[in-house]
Amino acid sequence: MSEPHPTSLAERLVARFGDTLVISTVRNEVTAELAAADLIAVATALRDEPAFRFSELIDLCGIDYLGYGQTEWDTETVSGTGFSRGVEGQAQGRFNWAGRPRDTDLPRRYAAVVQLLSIEHNCRLRLRVFCEDDSLPVVPSLTQVWPGVNWFEREAFDLYGIIFEGHPDLRRILTDYGFVGHPFRKDFPLIGNVEVRYDPELKRVIYEPVSIEPRVLVPRTIRDDVDLMQAKAEAADHWREN
């Protein structure tokens, strides 16, 4: 182990990369957002330079920001008939393929999130790269920097359809052979599109359109801090101090 650096990781990142990275530190977790074009150069520097030495890539996952912050139950305003019923919405589990959200115009929906670990300095760093184009999300592949990212990128491609440019073998990994669509996208129905069964007459496994109905038992609700402040008063726990 080397001497602990006198400056914090966030300071070192700012000193080295300047405006390339947008850095935020919450609860001692450092997150750096960067453009896809800078990713390979920054990643290589983070791996090799003695101030960082992020020798291990712990995780990479896709994320789809469609519907971020949307609720299905208005808990603020009340009408003569009470609060809204919380039975409508476009959140996960509410729709089938025909009724999927079409209004998906969001500046930059998809991102790839990378968790790095430096064994030498015992610190972690999170990188977030947004894909510029929602219709064809592309991010450069990190396989040249950390070979272990291979399957994580395949997973993000499979589930979110993010294309990792330069990946040697970008195949589906978790879904079925011949699967259509990217199931973790927010506009992909939770119930799926097809179901599988063995047909005794045809004597083979067949695929059929899904027969179950979408159903959600608990509406998605966002409550503001008031609730939590109340909890704080009740319990004197350390709520939201961070």
Partner: peptide, 11 residues
């Protein structure tokens, strides 16, 4: 590991 993103909702 568990990477959790919340937008303030109950899910």
């Amino acid at each position: 590991g568990c990477y959790l993103v919340s937008d303030g909702a109950n899910k």
